[in-house]
Design a protein around this nucleic acid. Structure first.
Length: 253
DNA sequence: CCTAGAACCTGCGAGC
DNA sequence: TGCTCGCAGGTTCTAG
């Protein structure tokens, strides 16, 4: 309820008796529109959140935070489970295009048919930042996190601190191609699940961790040139890269 | 206006 | 055994 400012009781009161429409998603946010209300229940899983469909009589998870019961005869409920509480559910008004108003700044993801490659490239040229920061900036391109950023940069042979202002149109196009390839490959096998925290609504893990070329591979040989991969602290997290394939950009002052 | 870094949390494994 | 430290898939806020 962190993002539902009015709190849990208010959330419960406002939700009761409504019916969910078809779930939608943008980037890492997803929402359940309420029929006949112009509002939506917005969800973000943060680092450790899960949305689970469970039988009503299933034992409570240790970090069960929110339970949504239904009036139908299916005998299942929707549970939000989250260890670190960076994620949450909240209720918001929709904008005219049907998005919860608080996520209007989130860009489309690169698999969205309406994602604008040219606008993304122009944004890179305009920014005074580095490429990995840009890939993680959900107002420029959504859905890409620390894992898929490192994977796409490795495939592109681009160092994570390369300035975006110097990106040529072909280089942006190549990078976007690799971002899409990585995301499609991960989706095909259910995503990346290092542990049981990362599961779908049925509690099932994904298998893309077996296909990672960069993320988490510190000290292991690069899949292209066999040079040991490096890990560098970056933005309170980590960046993994091949020091030979992904050269540090020369500092120009 | 823009960008970099801190803050928000809990849990786990490594090292001492 | 038990303590501290570093680390974990994300986003938002604030200082400069």
């Amino acid at each position: 309820m962190r993002r539902h400012i009015a709190g849990g009781n208010d959330f419960t009161y406002r939700l009761k008796g409504h019916r969910f429409g078809t779930p939608r998603r943008r980037g890492k946010y997803l929402w359940l529109p309420l029929e006949d209300s112009g509002q939506s229940v917005l969800a973000h899983l943060g680092m450790s959140g899960q949305l689970l469909v469970q039988p009503n009589d299933a034992v409570d998870e240790k970090h069960l935070r929110i339970r949504v019961r239904f009036a139908d005869e299916l005998g299942t409920e929707l549970r939000f489970v989250d260890q670190r509480t960076f994620g949450g559910l909240s209720l918001h008004d929709n904008t005219p295009d049907g998005l919860p108003d608080v996520i209007s700044h989130i860009a489309r993801d690169p698999l969205d048919p309406l994602f604008d490659d040219e606008a993304f490239h122009e944004a890179l040229r305009r920014k005074r930042t580095t490429i990995k920061r840009a890939l993680l900036d959900q107002s420029l391109i959504s859905g890409v996190g620390n894992i898929y950023a490192d994977e796409a940069l490795w495939r592109s042979r681009v160092h994570y601190e390369r300035p975006t202002a110097g990106f040529t149109r072909p280089r942006t196009a190549e990078l976007l191609g690799h971002v899409r390839d990585v995301m499609n490959a991960a989706l095909d096998v259910g995503g990346t699940s290092f542990d049981s925290l990362y599961v779908n609504v049925n509690g099932e893990s994904g298998y893309f961790d077996r296909s990672l070329d960069a993320y988490g591979r510190e000290g292991l040989p690069c899949g292209r040139c066999a040079t040991p991969m490096l890990r560098r602290p970056w933005m309170n997290r980590s960046s993994y890269f091949c020091p030979k394939c992904q050269r540090v950009p020369r500092v120009v002052s």
